[in-house]
Computed example of a mutant assay.
Amino acid sequence: MCFYDPEPGGPAPPGAFVGAKPAGLAPWQASRAAAYVERRLETTIRVIDLARAARLSPSYFSRAFKTTFGLSPQKYVVEQRLTLAKRIMLTTDEPLCGIAVACGFSDQAHLSRLFRRREGAPPSAWRRERRQASL
């Protein structure tokens, strides 16, 4: 695949892509990738498996995924896991170590580190604060 940025007034060669913006995923590919992630959040999710589900090479899939979702596949998976963890924290009394494993994090420390980076507070404080606000 060759991208071509034509000079002003210059013709593009036959079969060249004009501009260097990569195409995103087709709607069926995007929904298949999102569903794959949703069904397998508690397991290891590899880009090669996502690409296979979308019938693309891993490198092309990664670029197209980022164009479509605005995040790399890895960051998208982390965001989905954090969203699930937040939902479980608000609706159950499950300990954080159990939530971490249920959401696909390696351990509670991994969940806490990523959660604090995203939310600005540790999960236990975030949970306590949200629960008190809902009373």
Rank of each mutant, 00 (worst) to 15 (best):
K86I: 04
G9M: 10
A30P: 00
T92H: 11
Y60C: 05
S57G: 13
P8R: 11
K75Q: 15
D93S: 12
Y4F: 15
A125W: 08
V77K: 00
G19Q: 06
L56A: 01
P73N: 05
E42C: 04
E119K: 12
L56F: 00
S72K: 10
L82N: 05
G98S: 13
A20P: 03
T44M: 06
C97Y: 11
R128W: 09
V78Y: 07
A54M: 06
E7A: 15
I99M: 07
M89F: 04
R63P: 00
R40V: 00
A121S: 13
P13C: 08
L25R: 01
F105P: 01
I45A: 07
Q29R: 02
S134Q: 15
A53Y: 00
G19I: 02
D107Q: 05
Y4G: 06
K75I: 00
S31N: 12
G24M: 03
G9Q: 09
G19C: 09
R127T: 10
S31C: 10
C2F: 09
L41R: 02
S72L: 07
D107A: 07
S57Q: 10
A125K: 13
E94I: 04
Y76G: 00
L82I: 11
V101F: 04
A16W: 06
V37W: 03
Q80G: 04
L71I: 02
R81Y: 02
M1I: 09
F115L: 05
A34K: 09
A64D: 08
F17Q: 14
S57Y: 01
A35C: 04
A53P: 00
R128C: 01
R46E: 13
D5R: 13
C97D: 13
R32K: 14
R117W: 01
M89D: 08
A23K: 13
E38R: 14
Y60W: 12
G98Q: 11
P14M: 12
Q74N: 07
T43W: 05
S134F: 05
Y4L: 08
L114A: 01
L84C: 05
A53T: 02
G120N: 11
L25N: 07
I45N: 05
C2M: 09
P8T: 10
C103F: 07
F69C: 03
K21Y: 01
A20E: 10
L50P: 02
R81M: 01
S134Y: 08
A100R: 02
A23M: 07
A34V: 11
R39Q: 14
I45K: 09
R130L: 08
R52Q: 12
T91R: 12
H110K: 06
G70H: 09
I88M: 09
R118T: 11
F65Q: 02
A35R: 15
V18D: 05
A85D: 02
Q132R: 15
P13W: 10
Q29G: 06
E38S: 15
R118S: 11
L71Q: 13
A54T: 05
L90H: 07
P73A: 08
P95K: 07
A53V: 10
R113L: 12
R52A: 12
A64P: 03
L84P: 01
T67H: 08
V101D: 04
R32Y: 03
A23V: 11
I99R: 06
R63T: 15
A26M: 14
R55G: 06
I99H: 05
A121N: 08
A133W: 03
A33Y: 02
L135F: 04
P58F: 05
R63E: 14
